[in-house]
Design a protein around this nucleic acid. Structure first.
Lengths: 335, 335
DNA sequence: ATGGTTGGTGTAAGCGCTTGCATCATTCTT
DNA sequence: AAGAATGATGCAAGCGCTTACACCAACCAT
């Protein structure tokens, strides 16, 4: 009993397909009697308008699509939670599209999806392209909101990476640390670049020497290096040098978790700060820079819906402020 | 320059839309000259067939949809990784649909999505319904594969929860533990029910007393209770009783992480085993029951594609075996 | 009784694409 | 040189739905 269509319902109910369509769409100029009859038959046969036919006829999909490079990423998960809550209220369907990991074709994948118009609006999370490419996306005249990235002519919501890094470093410096290790991630990631840059920048401006031997990234570049394994590898590298760090700043919590394992294995106990404040951090006592991920998701949807409603509205660029959260991992006696 | 269609390309190229369609679909009876001309124009104008129109005309969507109750779930993330890898090879688009958390309507949400036929096949992860409801889904005659759940007439891939629990308990019992706490999750979750049931079952069959005071679940039932917070709360409850446990088995790793925090706060150091083997477990040294999540995702896709290819094939029910992984959390001297 | 409203329903065009079939040059056979 | 086979393209129907517009009975006011 597959593929039942509006025609089947119309025939069974003895009405035209237009009437069935009106009933299914809750149009109000349908008599109660007809409405009930159609409803009953539709329910019995398990009929519901096909998304594709409807989308074509309406030129509207009632669908929002999220695009992410790597779904198995805590940052994304939290942002997503915020997105979902908001979307649900607005009667849209949500689809998540996972951009394949083939570095070279990421942009093409995104562009093709957008060309295909399978949604009314798109939220791009942690997808970093050159300006030219973002500009190119504009020509499809489709509502897009960027999360964790910014571009002049596109709505976006992001978080101040400079400020987050500043807070972490400030704390460590104030504590008296002068050999602060940095566990970084892939150069492809813009937030990572910003954090790493600020790390150096603040050390310099404080007149503290920047030791290249204290800066490392693991070999594992899956998820742009934001992985436990990467953090572990990075810390191993650092500990292989003469210069022993007296503190550590990681560009993500998961990396910090990896780094902590390496430190434990080396019997090194120094203050360490991560970045993100994923749920687990609270439970393992990891100090970190909290990003309002849930709220960011929320705002992203808001921004997108607004744009869908009015394509000519002014570009909206929201920047959130991060916050230092102190836990056990920084409660360490300095030697 | 929005909404460019096959007609635009046809006109510009001076051919019929049929020809354009053929070029876009790599049909082979198109002359090289025409093909190149059309391709060039399509590229220049950024044209690509609209998914909805194509889906309607073809009665095929080239799209597979994953449905999950809660996306922010490690188990899901790992399974997803396996799914993606496999789907990518087969030229399908992947969409993830997050079933809203409104407990009452979950089934209806799933049914409606399936009715709307926005994909050629569906993978339902950790979605638990009554038999009648699963049976009802069958009438839409749509390829479906279940993950982490089974139903007689639907393809599925799951993992043996009884065996996993047995291994964990066996280890703890062999170690000499007789007061093994159990941190459980929501009753709604079938895997949880199976694990909790086996826990009691094995104790009884070993002639070890089952203390209800050692069995607990937290109050937080988000994600069916599979959360750090839930584990934390559960362990708090247990430690509030007289009966102090000498080991702990948790139905998920995240709960174990929560429980460990509670234990630390109470200065209790007993062996603890989680369930899942999420990435972080390796780094924090949590012993656990490993589930081959990636492989499960892989197999799920395989199974679904097979069904899409042949609706009459024999139902395929894959069951994977879990494996006990020992780490630091069980390296504890017993008192 | 007449014309004007009104609410409920049907008609038909169209959304952008695919695809079986027809068409028509070309080229091949004999 | 004529007919057959071949290759490339166009024609047009159809996928399942929405929606402007037309229609018509029933009702109202006059």
């Amino acid at each position: 009993m597959s593929q039942i269509t509006i025609y089947d319902i119309a025939k069974k109910a003895g009405v035209s397909i237009a009437t069935v369509s009106r009933v299914m769409n809750n149009s109000d100029d349908i008599s109660d009697k007809t409405r009930k009859k159609v409803r009953r038959i539709a329910d019995k046969l398990g009929y519901y308008p096909q998304a594709y036919a409807q989308g074509l006829a309406r030129r509207k999909k009632d669908r929002i699509m999220i695009m992410v490079p790597v779904i198995s990423n805590y940052f994304f998960m939290e942002v997503l939670a915020g997105i979902q809550a908001k979307i649900h209220d607005n009667n849209y369907e949500l689809n998540i599209f996972n951009v394949g990991s083939d570095e070279e074709t990421i942009y093409e994948q995104v562009e093709t999806i957008i060309k295909r118009q399978s949604a009314d609006g798109y939220i791009l999370i942690s997808l970093h392209f050159s300006s030219g490419r973002f500009e190119n996306l504009l020509k499809y005249d489709t509502p897009i909101t960027l999360v964790d990235e910014t571009y002049t002519n596109i709505d976006s919501v992001s978080v101040n990476n400079v400020e987050g890094t500043r807070q972490a470093m400030r704390y460590l410096l104030d504590k008296g640390c002068r050999g602060i290790a940095l566990v970084g991630a892939s150069d492809r990631s813009k937030p990572n670049r910003q954090r790493m840059a600020k790390y150096k920048n603040i050390l310099r401006s404080e007149g503290v020497e920047v030791y290249e031997s204290l800066i490392a990234t693991g070999e594992d570049m899956a998820r742009d290096g934001f992985s436990e394994r990467n953090g572990y590898e990075a810390m191993k590298k650092i500990l292989n040098q003469q210069n022993v760090p007296d503190a550590c700043f990681c560009v993500s919590d998961v990396q910090a978790i990896g780094a902590m394992k390496a430190m434990r294995e080396a019997n090194l106990n120094i203050p360490i700060i991560g970045y993100d404040d994923i749920t687990i951090s609270k439970y393992i006592g990891l100090s970190t820079i909290r990003q309002p991920m849930y709220e960011m998701g929320n705002t992203a949807v808001e921004s997108l819906l607004q744009r869908m409603d009015d394509k000519t509205a002014k570009i909206r660029q929201e920047t959130f402020q991060p916050e230092l959260v102190l836990r056990k991992s920084t409660e360490v006696e300095l030697p």
